[in-house]
């Protein structure tokens, strides 16, 4: 399975993401720059975290309107797996590839800590390596991770199993509605989540709880 990482000015988790994809798959991902209008033939496209365009206007708002995101949207339409982590999740929402919005944390504080995540839907291309309801550890680091959707949208995504990860055991760090940490699109090939699975993939990280997401998406897990 081949992967690509989207690069935008102001992202700062791209190296972690490239390292994780390289270590899990055995080969490095290709990288695509914000002005690229075509993305090579890959199975998985990842938008990493950071502060694209300094979070100006709204987190992810400017990045979502760059040429590369039209190419990402086209690949998503073709069924290619797309994964956005942290700022990448914000970008996918701003691009309209996922429903809802991410707002300032209710604490108004930047949170950088480990949380517990419940795998609310293990039947996705990104979570097959986990058991339904499994609780994993994962780091978060963000200021705007407070997921919001109107009542109608929320009922729809809850009803269709589009909530993939929830903060568990009282560790919701940002006030997200229904403890939502990550969601998938209705078709099931675009995932966005605030936590950073790329930072928990090997023993040196203190655990491998995040590895399953990459193993699932890269077809390494059954």
């Amino acid at each position: 399975m081949k992967s690509a990482v989207v690069l935008l000015p102001g992202l700062n988790r791209d190296r972690d993401m490239i390292a994780a994809l390289t270590k899990v798959s055995g080969s490095p991902p290709v990288t695509v720059w914000q002005t690229d209008t075509e993305i090579p033939d890959v199975d998985l496209i990842v938008i990493p975290g950071g502060f694209s365009y300094g979070d100006y206007l709204r987190c992810g708002a400017i990045a979502a309107r760059m040429p590369v995101m039209r190419a990402v949207a086209e690949k998503a339409r073709q069924g290619v797996m797309v994964m956005g982590v942290c700022n990448g999740f914000q970008i996918l929402l701003e691009a309209g590839l996922l429903p809802g919005a991410l707002m300032r944390n209710t604490s108004l504080k930047f949170v950088c800590r480990e949380v517990k995540l419940e795998v609310a839907n293990a039947n996705t291309p990104f979570t097959r390596a986990y058991r339904p309801g499994q609780v994993i550890r994962c780091p978060v680091a963000h200021h705007d991770g407070n997921y919001f959707a109107d009542a109608e949208t929320l009922a729809r995504i809850e009803g269709q199993g589009q909530v993939v990860f929830r903060y568990a055991e009282g560790t919701n760090p940002n006030g997200s509605i229904n403890d939502i940490a990550g969601i998938i699109d209705a078709r099931g090939n675009v995932l966005g989540l605030m936590p950073h699975p790329e930072n928990l993939i090997e023993a040196a990280h203190g655990g491998v709880d995040g590895r399953g997401m990459f193993e699932s998406a890269l077809g390494i897990a059954a």
Partner: peptide, 9 residues
Amino acid sequence: DKLLANTVI
């Protein structure tokens, strides 16, 4: 509609 406001919120 395209940039200045996020009409979701």
